[in-house]
Design a protein around this nucleic acid. Structure first.
Length: 433
RNA sequence: UGGGGUGUAGGUCAAUUGGCAGACCACCCGGCUGUUAACCGGGAUGUUGCAGGUUCGAGUCCUGCCGCCCCAGCCA
């Protein structure tokens, strides 16, 4: 027996009709001669009520064989029910098992350890909390695309297989025919700079690979990064853009993903407090503040996680830390004309201790200075020939930044660990599923 | 890689001083016409991470190894 096929989300408007929904068994409960089945179809969940006296005996019997996560089709009458989540429930008259699920489905509606859940990540993703995280992630991605599209940025895709170029940290390598080793890209930035000279303002959105032996709640070996690159933007223009982007993302998630944030039990007051302008603090001032607060960090050293937490603690919005010492940053950052010990850069730290979500800088646009810096870092100048060409043929003031997608998701969702913010996280010790 | 913690049933955990390895959930049987991680009664559940050592006796103590978690470094 079937009715009009419906998605669960559309049920309230189908009240009074006979429908069939297809989905997976999320929960079964029986109470004597009444039984309850909760079905999830990806658009929502609905409770289906089976009353023994009102359905054929074989249907009642079939209900008894339902197991967690079996794929089913349920037919019944839709009725509005104010107490039901979604506002409707189904008075079931038939259920068909489309795909059986043995009784050993590993994930029960109880607490589990993280390692066990990660081993079963392919199934864990069906849990409401994980679904909510993926939906917020999707909303953030779409907000980013819309943000740049509205501003006439061109989205460009940069190579994942590269020769050794970029930053110093760990690279994944693989054999590449007769060309020696290829490396998985750890940034698209240098290519982004070439594209910015062609199209003015561009952004990349893709996976990034870092073979660092990091075991923290903020690191993945494979993560997604958004890297805008803007011709004729100085570092301040770039910070302005970053602020607008983060505000747009935050507002979009608050506007459209309240139900998901509720599932995640996110305290949205923290997100509602995000308004511009974000404080811009120079590295030098930050060091002074840190020393007042008792930190042992001295000028010239990079800021540690503890230092970042101390600085962020005073604010409810993200903050920028600007103009780090040259030694603490990458070779391509432009020397600060007002203080040549430092470079024109800015890291954006998220509130609530979520740490660095953006790293950005104005790029060195002087050919000889850049070449000198490449040599200073002990890098192979020949490998950077094409990159230097960008300064040879029509060099231009330009800036860009990298926004870590998973870190942004973790911050907005309030998750304790970044690993839940991507469907299949890749960590040092996690390559499967 | 360094510091701290942890490993017991399919899952989450308990086990006193070294003295019969247990509870709950899930699973199976039975009961209940409105349940929300339902409830009530009954049943079944083990290479205590691995290897060795001390001991009459080790989940417990010792040595080594392994896995995982947290923190730090690297960064987004």
């Amino acid at each position: 027996m079937t009715g009009q096929m419906q998605y669960i989300v559309a049920l309230p408007s189908a009240a009074g009709t006979t429908v069939t929904v297809r989905g997976w068994v999320q929960h079964v409960r029986t109470q004597g001669k009444v039984a309850f089945l909760v079905v999830r179809d990806g658009t929502g969940t609905v409770q289906c009520v089976f009353v023994k006296s009102q359905i054929p005996p074989e249907v009642w019997e079939r209900f008894g064989t339902l197991t967690l996560e079996a794929a089913v089709a349920v037919t019944g009458d839709v009725r509005l029910e104010p107490r039901a989540p979604g506002g409707a429930e189904i008075g079931a008259i038939d259920v068909t098992i489309l795909g059986a699920s043995p009784i050993d489905y590993p994930i029960q509606p109880k607490e589990h350890g993280v390692d066990f859940l990660m081993d079963n990540r392919h199934l864990w993703l069906r849990a409401p909390r994980q679904v909510a995280l993926m939906r917020v992630r999707h909303e953030i991605e779409q907000a980013i695309h819309d943000f740049f599209y509205e501003r006439d940025f061109t989205r460009c895709d940069t190579p994942i297989l590269t020769a050794a170029i970029g930053e110093r940290s760990g690279l994944f390598s693989t054999e590449y025919f007769d060309e020696g080793n290829a490396y998985l890209a750890q940034t698209g930035q240098l290519y982004g700079e070439a594209l910015a000279a062609a199209m003015g303002r561009i952004y990349t959105f893709g996976p990034t690979f870092r073979a660092e032996k990091s075991k923290t709640r903020r690191h993945l070996t494979e993560f997604w990064m958004i890297e805008p690159e803007m011709a004729f933007y100085d570092v301040n223009d770039s910070m302005q853009l970053q602020e607008e982007l983060l505000l747009a993302i935050t507002h979009r998630v608050l506007e459209r993903r309240r139900p998901e944030l509720a599932v995640l039990e996110r305290d949205v007051s923290h997100l509602e407090a995000i308004v511009g302008p974000f404080p811009r603090i120079s590295y030098t001032d930050a060091i002074a503040t840190l020393q007042q607060k008792g930190s042992a960090t001295i000028w010239g050293e990079d800021l540690g996680a503890e230092d970042e937490a101390l600085l962020v603690a005073d604010y409810r919005t993200p903050i920028f830390i600007c103009n780090y010492p040259k030694e603490a940053k990458a070779f391509y950052m432009k020397e600060n004309p007002d203080d040549p010990r430092t470079v024109l850069c800015a890291d954006c730290l998220a509130p609530e201790g979520y740490g660095e979500i953006i790293g950005g800088s104005q790029r060195e646009d002087d050919h000889d200075k850049l070449r000198h810096r490449i040599q200073e870092e002990g890098l192979d100048v020949d490998a950077y020939g094409w990159y230097l060409d960008l300064r040879k043929y029509g060099t231009f003031v330009h800036s860009g930044f990298g926004l870590g997608l998973e870190r942004t998701v973790a911050w907005l969702c309030g998750t304790p660990h970044i690993r839940e913010c991507i469907p299949f996280p890749r960590l040092m010790n996690r390559l499967r599923p």
